[in-house]
Amino acid sequence: MNELAEPIGSPLTGPLAGPLAEPRPRIAAALTDDNELIAACRRGEARAMERLYHQYKRRVFGMAHRIVGASDAEEVAQEVFVRIFRALANFRGDSALSTWIYRLTVNASLSHLAKRGRRHEVGDDGLTDLPAPPPAERDSALASRIEAALAVLPPGYRAILVLHDVEGLSHEECAAILECRVGTCKSQLHKARARMRDLLGDSLRGPGDAR
């Protein structure tokens, strides 16, 4: 791709030039034997349950955190783990353990939002008031703007962005978690990113990129 005769500084030599960054590593090697872990948890073995918890806590909490927001994340994540352990007896292994756990997480998060109603949601206007950050702080400022934009996105868009872009799951995994077709997943991602671009506007552009 670098053979493209683009002027230096062109976007094509930047993020557009190469393939995707490496996806985040999948849940570590500890997943080697889900079945054994599940069986031990079903027997109520405290150590196995704790292991399962530690294997999934960051992702479950992280997903909940970004879908329902910081203040309710712990409540939702706890609810998810309680459901996991109580429902493990019914887990039939039709999907990967991770898929099942993330599905519970997304469903519990969306359900929580539905129950909470829209009273906490802020309008898009909140974003436009943010002052432009100085260049040096752009990365962390961009991160916080992304978080802010995620928070005002419709929950379904939030879910697909969190699963695919933040957590780095594949479209196939996302589709299994959201129980939809891969094609639906892709089109939702496209729409969700477009909405994010609208919300973020110029803050996606560094001082040199602005046209």
């Binding site: 062109s10 976007p11 094509l12 930047g14 993020p15 557009l16 960054a21 985040r24 704790e50 918890y53 806590k57 960051r58 479950v60 909490f61 992280g62 955190h65 970004r66 994340a73 712990e74 994540a77 706890q78 990365d139 961009l142 991160a143 992304i146 978080e147 962005l161 872009d165 933040v166 780095g168 990113r193 477009a194 994010m196 671009r197 973020l200 996606l204 552009r205 990129d209 046209r211």
Partner: peptide, 27 residues
């Protein structure tokens, strides 16, 4: 190209968001 650049920046920005740790007392 601008749209694509913006989306790539967005995508990379989301991938780079820090992981959030659950409270220690959650277990």
């Amino acid at each position: 190209r601008q749209v694509a650049t913006d989306e790539a920046t967005l995508r990379d920005g989301m991938r780079a968001l820090p992981t959030v740790d659950p409270p220690a007392a959650m277990w």
